[in-house]
Amino acid sequence: MTTFGWLQIGLYLLLLLLLTKPLGAYMARVYQGERTFLEALLRPMEQFIYRASGARAQDEMDWKTYATAMLVFNALGLLVVYALQRLQDVLPLNPQDLSAVSPDLAFNTAVSFATNTNWQGYSGETTMSYLTQMLGLTVQNFVSAATGLAALVALVRGLARRPAPLSSPPQAGGTEGGIGNFWVDLTRSVLYILLPLSFLLALALVSQGVVQTFGSYRTVSLLQPITDANDQTVTQQTLALGPAASQIAIKQLGTNGGGFFSTNSAHPFENPTPLSNLLEMLAILLIPAALCYTFGRMVGDTRQGWAVLAAMSIVFAPMVGLAVWAEQSGNPAFARLGVDQTASDLQAGGNMEGKEVRFGIVNSALWATATTAASNGSVNAMHDSFMPLGGLAAMWLMQLGEVVYGGVGSGLYGMLAFVIIAVFVAGLMVGRTPEYLGKKIEAFEMKMASLVILIPVLVVLVGTAVAVVTPAGSASVFNPGPHGLSEVLYAFSSAGNNNGSAFAGLNANTPFYNVALGLAMLIARYWLAIPVLAIAGSLARKNKAPAGAGTLPTHTPLFVVWLIAVVVIVGALAFLPALALGPLVEHLMLGA
């Protein structure tokens, strides 16, 4: 790897760290209802939304009400996106006269965007009208991210608060243990965090050449005519356009990942320059990293947030190293053909198959690890063409449960579930009362945290097993041997952890995969958010015990190491056998 390669990774991580505290502090103010510099501009809009929707913003909700509101809102959004796709041929803003999306693909896509996964079984430019992209997909990019943020903030309140009665009149089903108001958290997430950041990023992306237009596609003459497979001379090309920049900004910031165009951020109209690449990569991890600081501020001890961020970063860094090393080392099959894979001033070297020459090895591998660490799923290179160990790094980051930064909100609440496990196990081992931030961790919290960790594992492994043993599943696998298994495992790891990226070699736009992956995405999103909110409700009812001699400190390097061990051991135990049959054996076969 070149010096510039190391410098690029270092610059990226440095910028991310520098932005963590200011954004994290700002988000803490937003969620604690404090004044921000956007108050004068956005407060009237916020009040209007509450009045228009009938939301009683001053009321606290107990966890059941909060979870029910989340489910109802998401179900309605999902059905709207489904309807938009099925009716797009008769709706406006469809200059290319695209037909209605098939029912199974419409279901898969609606689920995908409502669950913040953004798995795409379609090509955007040939399938989705502008109306569907904007009113359906982009809107879901905002509200699905805001849903994740809301669930996290509710959990943090459960950890931070002392028991207090709900406001009068109480919400149905509870008299104490309020964890906030879902409608307020959703609205403030969108208005104060996602919209302003997306606006700034979209402008920056447009300045770099990302397209933003309602105009129809353009047909242009090729500078150099080519001959196609039928010996016909091709002199023209149709360039797909559309309102891309506005969708790409939130696709990255909201850890959504769904590309406007089929090739996602490898497309020159989505990601034209090295600067746009850096900005988009930063946007992927920005909010998930900053939320760690937000968490620390909200619980009154920023050291707790830094400790969690440190644990995430320590897992992330080696995965970046592994992916970059694997790709930069090149492909032995190319070496046998005499291809020069040495890095030099004239070429990036390494395994450049499936990568954009304007990004090279480092920015492709760094993006692949960031996007899979963050449950984002956007790509600027084709992961299917990565070396086996490069693909393994991306796949394993998803399989850890998307807790290494993870999705906006969902990443940190997943990591806090691991923290609960870590605290409980450590407490048992040393004979201390398991507690976190002064709240006792008891059997109920352990059961819920176990659900959060085990459900995605179950979904991924069972889904993969069913796919490879059924004709409907195996018919989509074009690569024989371990790489074919890797493709199926990657697909279910992606859907079962709400990531959305793909090993593109699998034909996933079939009724089997559209339905199976759709179900995986639904379970992975909502059947994790519900136990998380249940933990929040349970903790909110508990008194905070003052720290004493028997308290396990959870901000120390020792606890960070322990937390990493718990995350890695669970991830390794659950997925090592499957990985051994896929990327690991493929790596060994390549070297044989």
Partner: peptide, 30 residues
């Protein structure tokens, strides 16, 4: 017909999810 199948599928999933809330609440209450 397909539309009905998928819409019902989604509604059933969310109904089961509401049931999961109730199960979690019962577990919480011991």
């Amino acid at each position: 017909m397909h539309d009905l199948v998928f819409v019902v599928f989604v509604l059933v999933f969310f109904a089961v999810s509401l049931g999961l809330i109730a199960v979690c609440q019962r577990l919480m209450e011991g």
